[in-house]
């Protein structure tokens, strides 16, 4: 039995989103593709998020579940949590943020290198949720720019995955000129 060496080609279908411009195309039966640099960079970014899990409350359990083998965020290229903001590009804000914690969240956001995205995981991060009181930040978008909002208390894994796919769509459409975004407007720290 001989070993059959297959040509490591990529099927043209799977590259459809890379070749969205008029002048793009496939050469040499798909071995060579023409695309825009912006598109291919976005394509690689959207499939290799490095998460920083800013986990503060009960949503953390759901985050562990969705990041674990059963729901497996790794399938979408967002698997490896980095525990240093400087190594991460996706800030997952998972749980309730109190006013006392707000400066820390902003600091972590500012420490992340660009490009970076923010994922509001759970209704507490989205809007404060039912914690309408003296202690809780009424939505992290009052502190830092947010890219995806996933409500739910806690959100189901399907919703999180859906949110991640939405973020991927968003990343695919970005322009060079969108970056850098700079520090959070509220940062004093």
């Amino acid at each position: 039995m001989g070993v059959e060496i297959q040509r490591a080609g990529v099927s043209p279908d799977s590259l459809k989103n890379l070749t969205d411009s008029e002048d793009s195309g496939h050469l040499l039966e798909g071995s060579v593709i023409l695309t825009k640099l912006e598109s291919i960079v976005n394509w690689s970014r959207k499939y290799s998020f490095f998460l920083y899990p800013f986990v503060t409350a009960c949503c953390g359990m759901e985050f562990m579940s969705v990041a674990g083998p059963k729901y497996d965020l790794d399938r979408f290229g967002a698997a490896l949590p980095r525990f240093s903001p400087r190594q991460a590009d996706l800030l997952m804000v998972v749980g309730t943020i109190s006013h006392k914690q707000a400066p820390i969240l902003v600091k972590v956001y500012n420490q992340m290198t660009e490009p970076k995205w923010v994922f509001a995981f759970g209704v507490c991060a989205v809007s404060g949720g039912f914690y309408d009181n003296y202690a809780t930040v009424q939505g992290i978008d009052t502190l830092i720019p947010v890219d995806v909002y996933v409500p739910g208390c806690p959100p189901r894994p399907e919703m999180v995955i859906d949110g991640l796919l939405k973020l991927q769509e968003k990343v695919a459409k970005e322009k060079w000129s969108d970056w850098p975004k700079g520090a959070s407007p509220v940062s004093k720290c």
Binding site: H99, Y134, A135, V137, Q138, T142, S184, V186, S187, K188
Partner: peptide, 27 residues
């Protein structure tokens, strides 16, 4: 709570909607 917080929130006459964020909000 943090220094700079005004009032004492478990007093029954503390306004339920009162907000005193430490930083922000930006909108």
């Amino acid at each position: 709570l943090y220094e700079g917080f005004e009032g004492h929130p478990l007093r029954k006459d503390y306004p339920i909607k009162k907000r005193q964020p430490l930083i922000g909000p930006m909108n």
